[in-house]
Each structure stands twice: as C-alpha cells, then as structure tokens.
C-alpha cells in the first residue's frame, strides 16, 4: 500500500502542508515511542505524537505520560494493539484538546498504518522521521518515561503500567542507513578535469560523454538523446555523462 492510497484528499493536503514547511516554520512536531508488553509476546508499537496545533497556535500537552495514559486508559493490551482503537482514540483525544483535529486525524491514520501494515507502515514512519526535530528528544528518553511510570500511583496507570519502554533513545531515521564500503575504485577524475579545462567553453551548456581516460565520445544538447546513442552503440558502461557548465550565464 502506498502513502497516497492510505490517505484521503484532505489528509494528503494536510500532510503536504506539514512536509513542505521549512524547519523553522514548522509548527507540528513528531515523536516516536517504542512500547513493549512483557505479558504479551513481543508487542511493539510506534506512536507518533503531534505537539502543536498549527492553526490554533495552542500547544498540546507535551508530557508523554499524558499521551501514554490517554491512549491506554482502562484498556487491555490487546485492545491497545488494535489499529482501529488506536485511530479512534487518537482522534477523540485530539478533538477534546483543541478544535483543529486535522493533524490528529492524519497522524492517527499513520499510527494505524504503522501498527497494521507492517513494512508499509514503517515506510510511512520513515517519511515522518524526516520531519522530526530531535533537539528535544531527551524529553522522551526512555529513562525519563520510565521514571514517570515508576513515580505514578498504580491505580492511575492501569494499562500504561503494563507497558515498559525499551530500546535506546530515539534516533533520526537518517542515522540508521550507513554507508558501505563498495568495490575497488577504477578510473580517475584527473583526465576528466583536464578535458574540462581545455574544452569547457567549446561545449558550454551541452551534455558530453567522456570515457575513463578523458577521451571525448559524444555530445548533445539532450541528455536523453546522448544516452540513447551511447546505449545503442554499447558504449554507456563506465562512461561519464555530465553537462558542461554554461559560461554564458
């Protein structure tokens, strides 16, 4: 299931508004929790929390335990795991906190997706990770959350008490994929740089194909046309395609 198919038009617009805002202009923040239920088998859930209402300008309570308890109050773990319950509860919570429920709906749907869709949900969470401002991540450090749970009377933390936070502090998704060492290097930039020095004015603005020794193969104003010719001639592999800087501008 793809991202657009999951959301309706209104939600897509809301998410687009969220994602296209510059970081300094963003008024909604997103956070992630990892929860586990020791009495059930390896239950893990992700909760993405909006922190601020963009239209009303009011802050949603930032105390994670309030969300935690609101999400799970008087519910069993199995109920909590239900995507339908999560989405419904999340929407109700937002409605009660401020009139602008749009972001809550979007995020609620995404929570549903995360819990119910496996890999597809993870992809959506990955998209939202790119929006996160992790400067305040320490607020949600598992240790801080555990401290709150430990200091809250048992009768006030029915279902939440059964949940413990596990794992390390949240990290931006961008930190997870690392670079890998690939194959041994071949070719060199030096002959290409030499070609540029000698020919950049003659080929300004055009796409050129150079082999690894800096030998000129072909040129065109269209990258696609140049590429098609090289492919047809069996010359594309290892060739450098680049557009020569246009010195006229």
């Amino acid at each position: 299931m793809t991202f657009p198919a999951l959301l309706d038009e209104r939600e897509r617009k809301a998410l687009a508004a969220l994602t296209t805002a510059a970081p300094e202009e963003r008024t909604t923040d997103v956070r992630e929790f990892h929860g586990s239920d020791p009495q059930a088998n390896s239950t893990t859930a992700l909760f993405i929390l909006p922190m601020h209402s963009p239209s009303s300008g009011s802050w949603v309570p930032t105390d994670p335990s309030r969300w935690w308890q609101s999400m799970h109050h008087e519910r069993t773990i199995s109920d909590v795991r239900s995507p339908a319950y999560l989405a419904g509860r999340y929407r109700a919570l937002h409605t009660s906190l401020h009139p602008d429920v749009l972001y809550g709906e979007v995020i609620g749907r995404l929570v549903t997706a995360t819990v119910g869709l496996g890999a597809a949900g993870s992809a959506i969470v990955g998209a939202l990770h790119s929006l996160c401002d992790w400067k305040r991540a320490e607020e949600f450090h598992p240790q801080n959350l555990q401290h709150h749970v430990a200091s809250t009377p048992a009768q006030e933390r029915t279902a939440p008490a059964a949940w413990t936070v596990r794992g390390s502090a949240p990290k931006p998704s961008s930190a997870s994929p690392k670079a890998r060492v690939g194959t041994q290097g071949r070719g060199s930039m030096t002959p290409l740089a030499d070609w540029f020095k000698k020919n950049k004015e003659a080929f300004a603005g055009r796409w050129v194909a150079l082999d690894e020794k800096g030998q000129f193969l072909d040129a065109d104003v269209s990258r696609a046309a140049l590429r098609r010719r090289l492919l047809a001639a069996g010359q594309l592999r290892g060739v450098v395609l680049t557009q020569v800087p246009d010195t006229s501008e």
């Binding site: 890998r180 690939g182 194959t183 041994q184 071949r186 070719g187």
Partner: peptide, 17 residues
C-alpha cells in the same frame, strides 16, 4: 556510490534519500 579513483581505495555506497 561515490567512486574512488584507481589505486585510491574503494567506492562507498550510500542508501541515500
């Protein structure tokens, strides 16, 4: 993949966004 020059070690592959 960032491409290394010949004799200058290995390429590095990045799962980029």
């Amino acid at each position: 993949a960032l491409l290394a020059d010949e004799g200058m070690g290995n390429n590095v592959d990045v799962e980029a966004t």
